[in-house]
Simulated assay, not measured.
Amino acid sequence: MIDPATLPYRPNVGITLFNSAGALFLARRADLRDVWQCPQGGIDENETPEDAAIRELREETGLSEALLLGSFPGWLPYDLPAHLIGKALGGKFRGQTQRWFAMRMTQDDSAINLAGDGSEPAEFDRWEWVMPGDVTRFNLGFKRPLYEKILPVLSALAPPL
């Protein structure tokens, strides 16, 4: 049995992408058919969190651009559930420490391509625009408390235009 306290957190970014109506891009994970989330992913070596956020958005949604509106202050760590320790995230991490960004969609919805840029397997199989107050009606898995913390702050950066 792996002691989670001996494992580090993986540096990661999350992207809350808002459209002009102030709705949030929320997508269903292809591997966990009932769990929804925002785009997110690891930070590569020698990559800034901002650069990682732009790359992850492109990889997971196919979007080539978005307007950076701001970020949640500081890093937010979360631990994996016990049954995922040693399995998820390559078995090397106890969880992730995330930097969350708010971005505004600058392209038409038709630019969204869940196959992303083709550099990675598709992470999502479905997506919706969801008003921030309605996000908790979706199954967010063990990340629900994280979304409850970040959404009031990040959605305030993206009011309807």
Rank of each mutant, 00 (worst) to 15 (best):
L80R: 02
A82W: 03
L146V: 02
A23I: 06
L24C: 12
R10M: 01
A102D: 06
W129H: 06
T16N: 10
G95F: 00
L57G: 11
D3H: 07
L154F: 01
P8D: 03
M105T: 13
D108Q: 13
R33F: 06
D44R: 10
D134H: 06
T106A: 11
A5K: 10
V135W: 07
L24S: 08
T61S: 14
R29F: 08
I2N: 06
F93R: 00
T6H: 05
G91Q: 03
R29L: 14
I54K: 08
D44Y: 07
L67R: 13
G133W: 06
M131H: 13
H83V: 09
I85E: 02
T48R: 00
E128D: 14
P77G: 03
N139S: 11
R58E: 09
P81F: 11
S64V: 15
G14M: 01
A5F: 03
L140Q: 15
D51H: 14
V35M: 14
R29E: 14
L114K: 11
A88L: 01
A111V: 10
P159T: 08
P81T: 04
L68T: 14
T6Q: 09
G22K: 11
T97V: 00
G95Q: 02
L76Q: 01
D3L: 07
G14A: 02
A82K: 07
L146I: 00
Q98A: 05
P39W: 06
E59Y: 07
L32I: 11
L76V: 01
E65T: 14
F138S: 08
W100K: 03
D117L: 14
D79N: 06
A88C: 03
T106I: 15
R58N: 12
D51P: 09
R126N: 13
C38R: 08
D31Y: 07
A30V: 05
M103S: 06
Y78T: 04
P49C: 03
H83M: 11
D117W: 13
A102W: 09
G42P: 12
L114W: 12
D125S: 07
M131G: 05
P49S: 02
P159G: 05
F18T: 05
V130R: 03
S155G: 05
I54D: 04
P77Y: 00
Q40G: 14
A53I: 01
